[in-house]
Each structure stands twice: as structure tokens, then as C-alpha cells.
Design a protein around this nucleic acid. Structure first.
Lengths: 165, 165
DNA sequence: TGCGAATCTGCAATTCGTGCAGATTGGCGG
DNA sequence: CCGCCAATCTGCACGAATTGCAGATTCGCA
């Protein structure tokens, strides 16, 4: 997602208006790596602008997603929004539900069987497991529980290069 | 998912009762590759047993999933259920929403970056694109539309070996 | 065959979003 | 700087997908 100033121009260019509510949301989303749900974002926005409506949050998120400035993730429960639109994937903690961005290389080496006739044009990978904070703690929390499916496989982790872009 | 007879034993072994409703659902699910939603399954069940309740379908699906006999897939819209519990992944048609099972090899060659501290214990891959029937037809249908995210990548398709196990 | 726990069914209640309508307001034209 | 009108905003009703409940039934061990 572009920065607030660029989004302002982009919205105007599309004939969309730039309201204080939208500017606030642009700001709350820019650089946000929490993958917030509409509700979570509403909570943040409401703290700064008590009068803002949840409906407006939904509307703005929908607009941003339609413009390709946000990716929306349906992983069960409320839809999560991701301002990071670079090609990437996710890791979700099965205990706390937290989402983290992960970058997967070598996708080309995958051998896919069963695609007869199906023409893929993209793929999303979601790793499930325990986040750093939850490692060592008990079983998964209520809802987020249960296995999504595929059992453990081995993933190679390249020598970490950079983590704070 | 095991066959109806085995499920009958498994349920009794767990202190769960085997009712006509459950037997019907066992039968409708066994070998079912349509990845039906609770509603879809209810429609099938209702055709054979008009009095069955949607609530019962949900309950039984929940029980089966808890026993690991079914995988549940949250891909936006209603939850889809998959009686195929072998390690596998999915391909969803962005036009008609149909789901197909796909088998992905060489997962081990993937290089994952950004997992610092996160301990993965599984991953699910969902390919999106057009199924054989929809290839050539127009744009995606309403809801199923929009990109999930990751752009096109190249996937190798091994020489087809067997497709009807 | 009997009985108690597990189920079933119908309906209310929830969660997550979207559709609507009336009151406001952004921002281009004058 | 002023006005106008479409684009918004907010509150609320409505809709889809599930889950919680309660009373009536039924499975299945003793």
C-alpha cells in the first residue's frame, strides 16, 4: 500500500474524495504489519476519532482492496487486511491467531499433480504453527484451534539476510 | 475419511451414537470430492431424508472434523469440508468456486524467509485460477472474484502418472 | 426390555458484512 | 471566496453462516 499522500492523489484521480476518516485509516494502515480485521482497525480509528463509523471502515477497506492497495485474507473468522502487497505469503499462529508475512522462494521447484485442466494463475501459502510469543505455551485457543490440514513438512530457511527494511 | 462401517465403529468407540442421520451423512461424504459446504451437504441429505435438520448436518460435520475424519477449509464464504485427509492442497476456480485436490511435491525445496521465531508445523497451499470447465469463459463471478494475492509463478507439472486411484 | 445419556429438530442469538436513506461535506467551476 | 452536487458518513435494518438452547426422541449397554 502506498503512503497516505500518494493514496490521497490516487483517490482523487479516481474521483473518490479524501475525507478525514479516510486519511486517518490511510495512516493507521500504512506500514501496519498486524494484518488487522475491520473491527481491530475500527478500534484504533475510534480511539483517535470517536465519531467514526464501523461502516466507514468497511467501506474504505473495500475501496482500498478494490484499488489493489490492500490484500484481504479469508482464513476463517473475520477478514484480515494486509497493506503489504508485495508477493508474499503468511504464517498464522494457531494459538493466538497472529499473522506474519513470510517470503517463499523457489516456488518454481514445486511439482503439482492433479491440476488436469485447471489453469492456475497464483497461489497462496499459509503456514500454521506457533508464533515466537506462543511457543512453549499450551494448546491452541478456542476458535483458531484444529489443524487446517497438511501435516508437517520440512522447509529450508535461508541464511537470514535482512529483517528490518 | 474412513468408510461408513469404520466410522460407525469409531463413533461408538468414542461413546458417540450412530443415528440414521449420521449414517446418511457418512455415506454422502465418503468418496465425495466436491468439497461441499454444510448447506450443499444438507441439500443432498434433505433429498434422501426430508426431515433432517441443517443443525444436525453442522453438528455431524463438526464431530467428524474433530475426529480428524474431515478437513475443513475456510476460503471465504461458507466453510467447505473435505473427506480426503491425505496430505494435499487445493485449487479453487475463481469463476465458479469449484475446489479440486492437488498434490504438491518437493515442498522441502521451498526457502522461507521471515519465519523468525515462528515454528511452522504445516502449510496449506491454495492455487487460484480457472477450472477446466470455466477456462475460456468470461470474468470471475461476483464474490469469488478479486485476487487473493500472490501473482503468477511458474509451477512444474510432472508427467502425469495416475489420476484414478 | 429399560433407562440415561447422547441426539435431533426448530428457533433464537451471534458474528461478520452489506444495503439503504437521510444528513453532510469535499472540491471543481465560477 | 461561494455554491452546487456527487461522493461520503453514520446508524440501522437485513442477510449469510454458524452456534447456543431446550424440549422431545432415540440409541445401545446392562
Amino acid at each position: 500500500m502506498r503512503n497516505p499522500a500518494e493514496l490521497t492523489s490516487a483517490f482523487r484521480a479516481r474521483g473518490l474524495k479524501v475525507t478525514p476518516q479516510r486519511q486517518l485509516l490511510f495512516r493507521l494502515l500504512h506500514g501496519n504489519t498486524a494484518h488487522p480485521s475491520a473491527d481491530a482497525l475500527y478500534a484504533l480509528a475510534h480511539a483517535e476519532m470517536p465519531g467514526i463509523s464501523l461502516r466507514t471502515v468497511y467501506q474504505t477497506l473495500t475501496d482500498l482492496a478494490a484499488m489493489g492497495e490492500l490484500d484481504s485474507l479469508s482464513l476463517g473468522g473475520a477478514t484480515r487486511f494486509d497493506p503489504n502487497t508485495d508477493p508474499h505469503h503468511h504464517a498464522q499462529c494457531s494459538r493466538c491467531g497472529a499473522l506474519h508475512d513470510v517470503y517463499v522462494e523457489q516456488l518454481g521447484c514445486l511439482e503439482v499433480r492433479g491440476l488436469d485442466g485447471f489453469t492456475p494463475n497464483g497461489a497462496t501459502i499459509v503456514f500454521s504453527g506457533l508464533c515466537a510469543a506462543c511457543t512453549g505455551l499450551g494448546a491452541p485457543r478456542a476458535a483458531a484451534a484444529a489443524s487446517e490440514h497438511a501435516p508437517v513438512e520440512q522447509f529450508s530457511t535461508p541464511t537470514p539476510k535482512e529483517q528490518s527494511p
